[in-house]
């Protein structure tokens, strides 16, 4: 009954939102067309151009890692503080692996290790090519972490070297901020793209954006791995 009421309330709210937006002509007006809006500028470049205003071929990336790079810095901070929280609440000093309730057989162990490399490579690829193709640091980092998760799930004795992840996490985050501050010194603004943009579509183009994306990828990967480790271990009582 309670759940049903909750569903009803949620449905009601949804209908309400739809209704209120239906009458809203402004909302309907800008369905697809972005002409004349601020956002028009975001997608304004062509493949092969030299030194366009904003470098990456991938428009989404140009928004995420360039126009709104500061937001992205904020987002990785959200992830950072979340993983800190997990570590604070779950992390203890002496830890052992959580009992998963089964023992992996030989095939699973070896197979997962083979698969691990492939997933890791995909993750790295997605991260590095973030400014050219769909993907980027966040999904790439998540893929890297998922490769770790695979190892954790497939082997009930496996533990990664968490200390390494910590260092990676810290260094990647610090470098991100430092690149931002470097922008302040080498150019005029924080997080400004102070390197040469190159030609749109090349792997080495778009200035600092691939750099940032790699850092994001590393940071996200190591943070999520850390979280996984925290979830899959327990304190020795």
């Amino acid at each position: 009954m309670k759940n049903f009421l909750a569903l009803l309330a949620a449905l009601g709210l949804g209908v309400l939102i739809i209704l209120s937006l239906q009458n809203n002509t402004l909302f309907n007006e800008y369905g697809e067309d972005v002409t004349g809006r601020d956002s028009e500028e975001y997608g304004d470049r062509e493949y092969g151009e030299e030194n366009p205003a904003s470098g990456p071929a991938n428009i989404v990336t140009s928004i995420v890692a360039d126009f709104r790079s500061f937001d992205t810095l904020g987002e990785i901070t959200v992830l950072f503080v979340s993983s800190l929280g997990v570590a604070l609440l779950l992390g203890g000093t002496k830890q052992k692996r959580l009992d998963l309730g089964f023992h992996p057989n030989f095939m699973l162990r070896i197979g997962s290790k083979a698969l691990f490399g492939i997933i890791l490579m995909t993750g790295v690829y997605v991260t590095i090519h973030g400014h050219l193709t769909p993907g980027g640091g966040f999904p790439g980092g998540a893929m890297i972490a998922s490769s770790m998760l695979l190892l954790y799930l497939a082997d009930d004795t496996f533990r990664a070297k968490i200390k390494g992840f910590k260092i990676l996490e810290s260094v990647a985050g610090s470098l991100y901020v430092l690149i931002g501050i470097a922008g302040l010194f080498f150019a005029d603004y924080f997080l400004e793209n102070f390197l040469n943009n190159g030609v749109v579509g090349d792997l080495l183009s778009a200035g600092i954006i691939p750099l940032i994306y790699v850092l994001i990828g590393l940071k996200v990967g190591s943070e999520i791995s850390g979280v996984i480790d925290n979830f899959l271990t327990e304190e020795v009582v």
Binding site: D38, E41, Y42, D66, F67, R68, S69, F70, D71, G183, A187, D188, Y189, F190, L191, E192, N193
Partner: peptide
């Protein structure tokens, strides 16, 4: 008005 990333507002943050 502190501009971030070199994009004047309202384009940038």
């Amino acid at each position: 008005d502190v501009i971030i990333g070199g994009f004047d507002s309202p384009i940038g943050i």
